[in-house]
Amino acid sequence: MKYITFALGKGRLVNNTINLLNEIGIEFPEYHENSRKLIFEDEVNKIRIVLVKASDVAVYLERGAADIGVIGKDTLIESGANVYEMVDLGFGRCRFAVAGLPGTDLNKKRLVVASKYPTVTKQFFAKKGQLIDTIHLNGSVELAPLVGLSDCIVDIVETGRTLKDNGLVVLEDICEITARLIVNKASFKTKNQRINDLIQQIEASVSKKGDLVR
């Protein structure tokens, strides 16, 4: 039997995903949070996980190096990957928002927006029919409006603490974000039965939890 490979974006989604897999009986005995290994296997169920940079998950899938991926909706939109987006895993919940100093006028001409997510930013403002100037930054985006680099930012907001500590507020919500289970289209077609079973087990496990929360 061939291995089914999961690509997980390194970071907060890994533990959640591994817990979820444990719940459906898939175990990675060698995995612990501080391990530096990048690949773990469940030899019984023939499942392998590889830990990659979140923004690379889509590349692994599109190139067929992994069958299934777990990725935040934020990274998924930004990558524009051509994959099946089959389960909303419910964890890693946060949202995309436009943020800036209180009282910022978002309707001004030639709004300058800084973001780690240029695609999301452009799409959002294009939908509103607004021309903007996008500045692509790789981190510490909150700084941009403070030093006059931009009028506002587009970023993910989890608790809002980083914004608050820097004197920024949410000006407009864009959309909710959760972790998504994505599937390579070719794997879905060629390893259909096993992948299908796995997805159904995961879905059942997720919706059970969803019911508990409600």
Binding site: K2, L61, G64, A65, A186, K189, T190
Partner: peptide, 9 residues
């Protein structure tokens, strides 16, 4: 048409 182990049709 998909080939097992290859990512695109």
């Amino acid at each position: 048409g998909f080939i097992t182990g290859y990512g695109s049709p």
